[in-house]
Design a protein around this nucleic acid. Structure first.
Length: 297
DNA sequence: CTTTCAGCCTGGGCGC
DNA sequence: TGCGCCCAGGCTGAAA
């Protein structure tokens, strides 16, 4: 579930389930994630679950329980809050389970093991990830946020900010939208959907947009993401996860994965072309119409 | 700086 | 039923 709306959905589902809960430990079952292991989590509480771009950030406060000597280095270090960042990449999922309940629901395969588990005082958060591209990292959120582009759902994402970021770039729009250091959170589905709604060619150079076109791109980004978040994102697999997060936005996709099918707006067959090793979907009919409509009568 | 491309992994779907 | 492809919601790092 890996673009902004899917990650946002996970955050909204997970936050009320684990906020305020005590953590016991993190258990790692995949050697690729060994660097995320640590033994100082017992007694910490989950203080928040938030989204940073496509990452889920679980904040852990200082530990309660038995105290170490006040003022010692140990005490200072143990009070430091910690932030666990989960990146789902292509196939990652976070599944919350109550202890002894829902034992089997959500498990992708019998006898399969999650890559990692955060054990809570009661229940756990499991990290499942078939392709094992996902990552677990302990981060400094300020530093991580500084490396991230503007969040397109937030107040900093304005037409002027978008224009300033686009200025001078010769990268094709589709490719540019996938960059996480300019505008964060977009991926292969929503980049195509947004450009279609904005009636902009995926192959146009980013820096070539007029003010009006940049405004269309801005509006389309907001509209597509808002609708996708309202619908809990896009889910292709029929898999139901442990608390029933199943997106509905796949019903509203207009171009993604529809190569050869008629455009819902104009009937022209949707085209697919590979850009930067990723499939781009667009409707040539809608772009032609746009050009014609834009020229003086 | 840009662009391209292999690589990281597993599994589903398709044509033969 | 099996085999060999191609494809997949992401991103990194090396090379040109």
């Amino acid at each position: 579930m890996p673009e902004l709306p899917e990650v946002e959905t996970v955050v909204r589902q997970l936050a009320p389930l684990i906020a305020g809960r005590r953590v016991q430990s993190i258990r790692i079952f995949d050697a690729k994630l060994a660097a995320a292991a640590r033994a100082d989590l017992a007694g910490r509480a989950v203080t928040s679950v938030t989204r940073l771009g496509k990452r889920i950030v679980i904040a852990l406060g200082g530990p309660g329980g038995p105290r170490v000597r006040a003022g010692s280095r140990e005490a200072r270090e143990s009070r430091e809050p910690l932030w666990l960042a989960v990146h789902l990449r292509m196939t990652g999922r976070l599944v919350y389970r109550d202890r002894d309940r829902d034992r089997d629901r959500g498990a992708p395969a019998a006898n399969a093991v999650p890559r990692a588990v955060v054990e809570l005082d009661r229940g756990r958060v499991e990290f499942w990830d078939t392709r094992r591209f996902g990552t677990l990292e302990w981060i400094d959120p300020e530093r991580a946020a500084a490396a991230e582009g503007i969040d397109p759902t937030g107040p900093a994402f304005t037409v002027e900010a978008l224009r300033a970021l686009l200025r001078g770039t010769r990268q094709p729009l589709k490719t540019w939208l996938l960059r996480q250091d300019r505008v964060c959170g977009l991926g292969n589905i929503y980049a195509s959907e947004i450009l279609h709604r904005a009636r902009l060619s995926p192959f146009r150079a980013g820096g070539s947009l007029s003010r009006a076109e940049a405004a269309r791109l801005h509006a389309a980004t907001r509209q597509v993401l808002d609708a996708a978040i309202r619908n809990c994102g896009t889910t292709f697999s029929d898999f139901q996860d442990a608390h029933g997060v199943t997106g509905r936005y796949q019903q509203y996709l207009r171009v993604y994965d529809r190569a050869g099918e008629p455009c819902l707006a104009c009937g022209t067959p949707i085209r697919r072309q590979v850009q930067q090793q990723r499939s781009t979907y667009w409707c040539p009919g809608c772009l032609k119409k746009e050009k014609a409509g834009a020229s003086p009568a």
